[in-house]
Design a protein around this nucleic acid. Sequence first.
DNA 1: GTCAAGGGCTATGTATACAGAAACCGTGAA
DNA 2: TTCACGGTTTCTGTATACATAGCCCTTGAC
Lengths: 218, 218
Amino acid sequence: MRAGERAYWALREDIVEWRLPPGTVLGEVEQAERLGVSRTPLREALGRLTAEGLTAPHSGRGVVVAAISLENITEIFELRSALECQAASLAARRGDPAVFARLQSEFSSAAELLGRNDPGRHDYYELVSRLDSSIDQAIGNPYLLQALKNLRVHLVRIRRLAKDNPLRLLAAATEHANIAGAIASGDSQLAAAATAVHLHQSLEHLKSTQQSSERTAS
Amino acid sequence: MRAGERAYWALREDIVEWRLPPGTVLGEVEQAERLGVSRTPLREALGRLTAEGLTAPHSGRGVVVAAISLENITEIFELRSALECQAASLAARRGDPAVFARLQSEFSSAAELLGRNDPGRHDYYELVSRLDSSIDQAIGNPYLLQALKNLRVHLVRIRRLAKDNPLRLLAAATEHANIAGAIASGDSQLAAAATAVHLHQSLEHLKSTQQSSERTAS
DNA sequence: GTCAAGGGCTATGTATACAGAAACCGTGAA
DNA sequence: TTCACGGTTTCTGTATACATAGCCCTTGAC
């Protein structure tokens, strides 16, 4: 792989996994040495990260890891619902019903999946990401797709802050099944509505965990 | 200004203004010499342009100016309506009513503006861009704002393909007045609806001019 | 003791040199 | 005539050297 590519993915991982917490100053020489590349490809990597909003210029000199916290959730979800409702709506019109009918049934039996002894919920999250990919394929709109990809970086970053509890995951599975079902039936309005419901519930859950962790901290 | 910055804006202008038509291969050495910078800042510029979708990697070697045509309009508008309806909706909730009430009245008297002898419709487009800016300020959501900015690059690029006729501009002014009015009244649903109407009409008009130019070409 | 000014230092921005890879062209054979 | 193979050439990717600009620390004066 190209050095610039390696540096980009390494830094991106480090930021998303919170090994480089928000506010960390990323010196070019320092990071270049750490990642074993020269400054040129490292600068390319920093440029891409800054374009994505993972890093931000630091008062004229250098870049810092962009701040993000649960306080940004509401703003992120305002963008997210706009994009994902549209995506679901388009998928309902253009997607292959069979694909989404199958996903619906898989989500309907997700209780069994969540019952397994799987601390990382690996199987479940894999199913969610299959739904996302299927929608991506179905919409067939490179502009919308790019906007979704840009958004997801930030979603992954805050996901690590959210402690998901089993009850919420079970409810989310039902919501996902509804979304898949709506798309399978070709009902674009319903697909958008089901997505809006799911995102609303997710946001409410996230905000409640935020409040409880604030109470714990104080 | 920094050399990389200059190269970026110069190339961006050249692409948006169709001086570098889609498919043009951008050799690093060639462009660096043309713009009077060295390859390092030029590569930074190309990287940013590629991230924005104005250029695209060219089968492993070099980058080309990204293809775009009226055929992409529908896809772009699918993203645009998602973002701008949400933006209008949020602006209705958070914007300063006085600002948008004033814009509404300005749009209501835009017939006079369009009657002037102004081939470029400069005053009118300035008014439209003031509405955009006001919405941008009102939404106060950096994530949504960034997505809108990314989108607008492509809109500017296809605007040069669209021949706007006086009748359409007059109708559009009314639609803009409706949007501003809905935001001023704080009605988020109505603001989204008015935006949806405006975008639908704009797209229909664009598609009809596309068809007529195809007939002319054949 | 505090603030301001100046010098040094470090980090960034840019240019350039070098290595490696991919495309192109020419030549040869089928 | 066409296809394949090899050499050449040009372009990209990377490293590094150099210049410049901003920051920090020190020193001096008030």
